[in-house]
Amino acid sequence: MGDWTGRELDLEVGAVAHGGHCVARAEGRVVFVRHALPGERVRARVTEDTGKSFCRADAVEVLEASPDRVQPPCPVAGPGLCGGCDWQHASPEAQRRLKAHVVAEQLERLAGLSWPVEVEPLADSPLRWRSRARFVTGGDGRPGLRALRSHDVIALEDCPITLEGAAAAGLDRRARPGTEFEVTQDARSTVHVAEIRPGGRPRQLQGGVAVERAAGRTWRVAAHGFWQVHPAAAETFAAVVAEWAAAPSGGRVWDLYAGAGLFASVLAEQVGADGQVLAIESGRRAVRDGQSTLADLPQLRWRVGRVERIVSTVEPRADVVVLDPPRKGAGAAVVGAIAAAGPERVVYVACDPAALARDVATFDGHGYRLRALRAFDAFPMTQHVECIALLER
C-alpha cells in the first residue's frame, strides 16, 4: 500500500465525524478530511498516514462546493494553517447541524439510543466569544496558535473568535520562542495576562482575579482557572441545571467536579437551610474561590480531591446528583457510585459527546434512562459542543 503522505486524492465527501472532519473513502481506506463539508467533491492532500486502515487529509481544492460553504472570517483558517478552529468554512447554521449530527451519532453508536438533537446558539454571532485563550510564540518571537497536530506556530495579528481585549493583550507581545501567554477577559472586560516561559512557572503580568457574574451572584475566581469560556454559558447552563435538578427542599444533593461551585450555588438555594449540598472538586484554588463566594450557604459542604476517590467514601444517599466531568467523562466507577446513592435524577453536563454517550450507556446498565438532552454551541467555529443531559431512575 505504501505511505500516502503528500499524495493528492479526488474525493466524494461523506458524513461529518467526531473530531472536526468528514469521512471519505479511497481505494478501500477511510480518509478523514478537514476543511471539507458533507456532499462536496474535493481534492485533498494526505497529511498523515500511519499505515493503518485510515489516513488524514486536508481539502486543498473544492471541486464541487456545498451550499453551506462560506468564506472563513479568519485569514489563517485553512489547510496547514491555524488549528484553533474546525468549521470556519461552514455557515453558523450548518456548523450547528454538523455538531447535532455528531452528538446523535455518538448516542446511537455508543449508547444504542436514537435521539433527536438540536444544537442551540448562545449568541447571535459566532465571533468574539472566547473569553479565555492561550497563545504561544514561534521561532520569530511572535505569538499565535499551533497548526493542527503540530508544534508549528502560526503567528496571528488577531483571533476573530476571541474577545478583542483578550486577543490584543495576548498577541501584541514579543518573547522568546515557546513562551505562552494565557489571557482572560472577565465580565467587567478587565483583561488578565499570565506569562509561562519554557520550563518555568506562570508569572502574572496583569490582573489575576477575574470577576464573573452568573446565577444571581458575582464571582471572584482565579483568572486562569476553570470558568465557562463563552460569556453566555455559565448563566445558561446554571438555569438548565436548576430546572432539571429540581432538588427538594431539605434534600441531599451532590455536585461532582464542582469547580468554583456555580451549580452548587443553585442547588443550595433549592434544598434550603435544612438541606445539604456536597461539592467535590480537585482544584484547591477553585474550592477556595467557591468557599469565599458562597460563604452565605452553610448547607454547602466542600471536599477537595479527585471525584473517583472521594465519592466512594461519602454516605451513599442523594436525592439529586449533578456532574460536570472533564473531557474523558466520568467513567464506570463514578457512575456506579452515583447509582448506588439512588438519586431520582442525574443532571450530566458534558463537553464531549463520545464521553457522554459512553456514560449514558453505563447509567442505563444501572437503571437510569436518558429523559432529556439539550446541546449548546458554546464553542462556535470549533468542533466542540456542550450538552446537558437529564437521566432519571
Results as ranks from 00 to 15, higher is better:
Val31Trp: 07
Trp129Gln: 00
Ala389Ile: 00
Ser131Asn: 10
Val347His: 09
Trp302Asn: 00
Leu278Asn: 01
Glu27Thr: 00
Val70Thr: 14
Ala238Phe: 04
Gln291Pro: 02
Arg345Glu: 07
Val271Leu: 12
Cys387Glu: 15
Ala340Ile: 00
Ala214His: 04
Cys55Arg: 07
Pro143His: 07
Asp124Ser: 14
Thr5Asp: 00
Leu63Ala: 11
Ala215Asp: 09
Val103Asp: 11
Gly275Glu: 09
Ala337Arg: 08
Ala286His: 01
Ala238Pro: 08
Ile338Gly: 01
Ser125Thr: 15
His21Trp: 14
Val60Pro: 06
Leu9Arg: 08
Ala214Arg: 08
Ile338Leu: 02
Ala273His: 12
Val221Phe: 02
Asp319Asn: 10
Ala223Met: 10
Ala123Thr: 09
Ile280Ala: 04
Leu37Gly: 02
Leu9Thr: 06
His384Arg: 10
Ala273Asn: 06
Val385Phe: 05
Leu278Ser: 04
Glu8Met: 04
Arg7His: 09
Arg41Ser: 11
Gln228Ile: 04
Ala24Cys: 12
His151Phe: 02
Glu235Trp: 11
Val191Ala: 03
Glu157Cys: 03
Arg134Thr: 15
Thr313Met: 00
Val360Ile: 14
Arg358Tyr: 05
Ala337Gly: 01
Pro92Gln: 13
Gln106Tyr: 04
Glu308Lys: 02
Val76Tyr: 01
Asp364Val: 06
Val241Gln: 13
Thr362Cys: 07
Ala264Leu: 04
Gly139Asp: 15
Met1Glu: 13
Gln204Tyr: 10
Asp364Asn: 06
Phe263Ile: 05
Val321Ser: 02
Leu37Asp: 04
Thr162Phe: 01
Lys52His: 11
Arg25Tyr: 13
Val117Asn: 09
Glu269Gly: 09
His101Lys: 15
Phe32His: 08
Val360Pro: 07
Cys22Met: 08
Asp58His: 13
Ala59Ile: 14
Ala286Arg: 08
Gly275Tyr: 06
Gln228Met: 05
Glu269Ser: 13
Asp296Leu: 04
Ala268Asp: 10
Val311Pro: 06
Gly84Val: 01
Val209Asn: 01
Ala215Gln: 06
Ala340Asn: 02
Cys85Phe: 03
Val347Asp: 09
Pro116Arg: 12
Glu180Thr: 03
Gly225Ser: 10
Pro38Gly: 10
Asp3Gln: 05
Trp87Glu: 01
Ser66Cys: 11
Val304Thr: 14
Val60Gln: 02
Gly261Ala: 01
Gly84Ile: 02
Val31Gly: 07
Phe237Glu: 07
Ala57Leu: 03
Asp319Glu: 14
Gln106Leu: 15
Arg132Val: 03
Arg301Pro: 01
Ala147Arg: 13
Arg25Trp: 14
Gly275Ser: 12
Gly51His: 02
Phe363Gln: 02
Thr293Gln: 13
Gly19Val: 03
Glu195Asp: 01
Arg132Met: 11
Leu373Glu: 11
Glu243Asp: 15
Glu243His: 14
Glu180Cys: 01
Gly83Tyr: 02
Leu323Ile: 09
Gly6Val: 08
Arg128Tyr: 12
Arg220Gly: 06
Glu8Lys: 14
Glu180Pro: 04
Gly259Val: 08
Thr179Asp: 08
Arg25Ala: 13
Met1Ser: 13
His35Leu: 09
Arg284Val: 12
Val349Phe: 11
Ala264Met: 01
Gly336Arg: 10
Val334Gly: 06
Ser249Trp: 05
Pro353His: 05
Glu108Asp: 11
Ala65Tyr: 07
Gln299Phe: 07
His35Met: 00
